[in-house]
Amino acid sequence: MAERKEFIGRLIVAGPTRTMTGEANGYVVEAEAIRRAVAEGLFRGLACFADHAAGGESPAVRRLVGVWHDVVYDEADAAAVGRLRAYDTAETRPVVELLEQVLEEQGLDEAAGPDLGVSIVFYPQLAGDGRTVRGMAMVESADLVMFPASGGSRIVGRMTNDE
């Protein structure tokens, strides 16, 4: 069996969420909500799909890229950060190759290249204003998408054999 490739990613970052055009969409995720979700193990063994399920579909095994593990709360970035261990299949290889090319293109400049990132599917616990995410009841997946809702949520590096 081929060695599975691993990537480092920020799954969600505290702050306002955004639309595909980069405008604020009215929701704000509190850092404490992310910290608690990590502490409660809501990111443990979390699936990663290529794109979110669309139009009421359920997540599809054929789009499963890998699994997130070792997710921690990063105080400095107010983010959930973890490792994506990609499966080595005919379906995942093009996605993994794309990730590697995007990382290479971006180099040290995250702004270079396409706005490809990570976006979580979760069930929020909202404050009375209906817009502030105070907690997470469940996290369903953390998927690779174009234009992630959480600014800064992206694959930020690749694990090497030394790490």
Rank of each mutant, 00 (worst) to 15 (best):
S153M: 06
V29L: 08
A37R: 04
F122W: 12
A149Q: 10
E97V: 05
A80G: 00
D77E: 14
E23N: 15
G117L: 01
G55P: 01
V29F: 05
R62E: 12
D109T: 12
D143Y: 06
V38L: 06
A111D: 12
A37P: 07
A142S: 10
G128W: 08
V72P: 01
R36Q: 13
V121K: 06
F147P: 01
V29A: 06
M20H: 09
E140S: 13
L84V: 09
A149H: 02
V71T: 10
G45Q: 05
P16T: 08
G22F: 06
F147Y: 14
V121M: 11
V61C: 08
L99M: 14
L64R: 13
A50G: 03
I8H: 10
C48Q: 05
L11P: 03
F122H: 15
A14G: 07
R36T: 13
M136L: 15
L108R: 15
F147G: 02
G56L: 01
L99A: 03
V133S: 12
V65S: 06
Y87F: 15
L108W: 12
V38G: 00
E40Q: 12
R35K: 15
V118P: 01
L98A: 12
P59N: 13
F147C: 07
R83F: 06
E105R: 10
A90F: 02
E104M: 09
D115C: 09
E97S: 10
A31M: 09
G152A: 08
L11I: 03
G55W: 05
A31E: 13
P59G: 07
T160K: 12
R18D: 02
T132W: 09
D162N: 08
A50Q: 11
G130Q: 13
L126G: 09
V67G: 03
F49H: 13
M138K: 15
L46Q: 00
V13S: 00
E23R: 15
E75D: 13
V71R: 00
G128I: 06
V13W: 01
T19I: 05
A137I: 07
V81N: 00
E57W: 00
C48G: 03
G9I: 06
T160D: 10
A24E: 14
E3G: 04
E32T: 14
E97R: 14
A24P: 11
G55M: 01
G56D: 03
C48I: 09
W68G: 06
D162K: 10
L144G: 04
Y73W: 09
R63Y: 11
Y27I: 13
G157F: 09
E75Q: 11
P94H: 01
A127D: 15
P94K: 04
W68I: 05
A60Q: 14
D77W: 06
R134S: 11
G128Y: 05
E140K: 12
G130C: 12
Y73N: 04
L126W: 10
E23Y: 09
P59F: 12
R154K: 15
E163L: 14
M159K: 14
S150Y: 03
V156Q: 00
E32W: 09
I34T: 04
F122I: 09
M1R: 01
L98R: 14
E100T: 12
A33R: 10
I34G: 06
P16G: 14
A33D: 10
Y123C: 01
F49W: 13
V118M: 15
A142G: 07
G82Y: 03
D143G: 07
E75N: 07
P148T: 10
G22L: 05
